[in-house]
């Protein structure tokens, strides 16, 4: 007893086993089926872009944390997730150096300048993607057919030429991770099962898109399965840091994402509006949090 050291720490003295790192690594695990599908369809390009994005993201994080004289906490896995998400959102033939630039922008401008993990208002991977899309428009919209390197003109969202089955399994042109609805749903189920994904955001997002597609006379199933809606709704919009923290707020956020997406898809000059729909709603997240504070125990009773 005399020679042993006692822990001095306030209560609670027991804690849940889940950690930030476990949450991040679970997201990585959920992205594995998506990456596997991308590699099956697009071959080496998938491995090249995702690896490069991860290395650039983790590297940028390490360097900038060191420059900010902060502990280099790259093992928390957050930069790994950002790099992986960015890589999977890129078109297969994008030059390597552009992926590196995208990851750098995502981590440094999307996250570190705001104060690092937890302090960024916008989804870092989408910030990186938005900058690439604005800077290198033609490379960021150069799509290839699966199993080939042949560049085609358009994704199914624009061409309208794909069967539901092709869209579901993913044998269509598109960004690496967005084509296979099946793989995305697998990952989503894992995240939901592990309590990391709040169903309200993807259900609100996809549901709103479905209803509005129906209202405006579009093919509802086609609108849901094509483009990057599923990938974004499951993996990007549900980013904990940049989405609301209240249950009602998550519905508002999901529905808002759907509204912006539909406006861009149907009336905007861009074919796909996923990136901007989420980024726009990220900007509203603090306000949504403020407006949707839940009633506390005993609150209404007192006011009566």
């Amino acid at each position: 007893m005399e020679d042993s050291r006692l822990v001095l720490s306030p209560s609670p003295h027991v804690r849940d086993e889940d950690t930030t790192q476990k949450i991040m690594l679970t997201v990585v695990a959920a992205l594995i089926p998506v990456w596997a599908a991308a590699t099956y369809f697009f071959g080496f390009n998938s491995i090249r872009l995702v690896f490069v994005s991860i290395i650039a993201a983790v590297g940028s994080e390490a360097v900038f944390l060191a420059l900010r004289r902060k502990p280099v906490t790259v093992w928390d896995g957050s930069a790994l997730v950002t790099g992986m998400l960015l890589g999977l959102s890129l078109p297969p033939t994008l030059p390597t150096w552009m992926a590196v630039l995208g990851s750098f922008v995502a981590i440094v401008i999307g996250k570190q300048v705001f104060g690092g993990l937890g302090a960024n208002p916008f989804n870092p991977a989408l910030v990186g993607r938005a900058v690439l899309a604005a800077s290198f428009t033609s490379q960021m919209t150069a799509w290839t057919m699966p199993f080939t390197d042949a560049v085609t003109s358009a994704t199914p969202l624009v061409s309208g030429q794909a069967s539901y089955a092709e869209l579901f399994f993913g044998t269509v042109p598109g960004s690496l991770g967005e084509t296979s609805a099946l793989a995305i749903l697998l990952g989503g189920v894992l995240l939901f099962y592990r309590g990391i994904l709040d169903y309200r955001i993807p259900v609100g997002f996809i549901g709103t898109t479905a209803i509005l597609s129906f209202v405006f006379g579009q093919d509802v199933v086609y609108q849901l399965l094509s483009g990057s809606l599923l990938f974004g709704a499951v993996f990007m919009a549900t980013d904990m840091v940049t989405s609301p923290i209240t249950p009602v707020g998550r519905w508002v956020f999901g529905v808002g994402c759907g509204l912006v997406l539909v406006v861009i898809r149907f009336w905007g000059s861009l074919p796909e509006g996923l990136t901007y729909s989420i980024l726009v709603m990220n900007a509203f997240t603090p306000l949504i949090n403020r407006w949707t504070r839940p009633r506390i125990y005993g609150q209404v009773v007192k006011q009566v």
């Binding site: 306030p10 027991v14 949450i23 904990m240």
Partner: peptide, 30 residues
């Protein structure tokens, strides 16, 4: 009288806004 394996302590890593504290608060606080 807790052993090392039974006890867990504060790390104060950055908040990732997972909202678990809000979802679990029995008083509905944030």
């Amino acid at each position: 009288v807790l052993s090392k394996d039974e006890i867990s302590y504060e790390l104060n890593q950055p908040c990732i806004r997972c909202a678990r504290c809000i979802d679990h608060c029995p008083m509905g606080l944030q």
